[in-house]
């Protein structure tokens, strides 16, 4: 009855159960944190704005992004993935989300940042609708936990507009 195998089995079961419980508690404790992040983005320059050979409008921007996301870090946070997307409507598409810049924040010390960047990914439309287009810039973040549930949220910044003419 109380052979070595049984004892090993019982020990393993207990160990796994305790680990699973601790993981669940760590993940649940994330719910207690109420983050209050802030972000500001300025479009400093339109570097160029053209209609490409495939008929799609494409634009290159220089952006200034400043954000303070320190409050979203908890002891169960492995990293936060932050990205800035341009979001707009066109007659054909009810929603267009184009990621312009992204970054990985490895720790709380790096969560207050200020950068100056041109768009990392192509800001291209499906079609030719970008002239004079109003768009939102949205800073999204996805918090990756050490274990458990992943969180995501965003700050929407409105009132940006592209020029009426290609340049």
């Amino acid at each position: 009855m109380h052979s070595f195998v049984y004892r090993a089995n019982a020990l393993l079961t207990l160990g796994v159960t305790v680990l699973a419980l601790m993981c669940a508690m760590a993940s649940l404790s994330d719910n207690l944190n109420v983050p209050s992040p802030s972000a500001h983005v300025h479009v400093l320059n339109i570097n160029w704005f053209q209609r490409q050979r495939d008929g799609n409008d494409e634009v290159s921007l220089t952006l200034n992004i400043s954000a303070n996301l320190q409050s979203m870090f908890t002891w169960n946070t492995k990293q936060a993935f932050v990205f800035l997307s341009a979001e707009y409507e066109t007659p054909k598409n009810s929603l267009n989300q184009v990621s312009l810049w992204d970054g990985i924040i490895p720790s709380q010390e790096h969560a207050k940042f200020w950068i100056h960047a041109t768009n990392k990914y192509r800001f291209a439309d499906q079609g030719s609708n970008l002239r004079g287009k109003e768009f939102n810039l949205t800073l999204h973040w996805h918090v990756m936990p050490k274990t458990g549930r992943m969180f995501a949220d965003k700050i929407v910044m409105t009132g940006y507009r592209l020029p009426e003419e290609y340049r």
Partner: peptide, 13 residues
């Protein structure tokens, strides 16, 4: 992988 661009159609979704 992570989604970086989304274009959603007005008529069909």
């Amino acid at each position: 992988h992570r989604v970086i661009k989304v274009h959603e159609r007005e008529d069909t979704g």
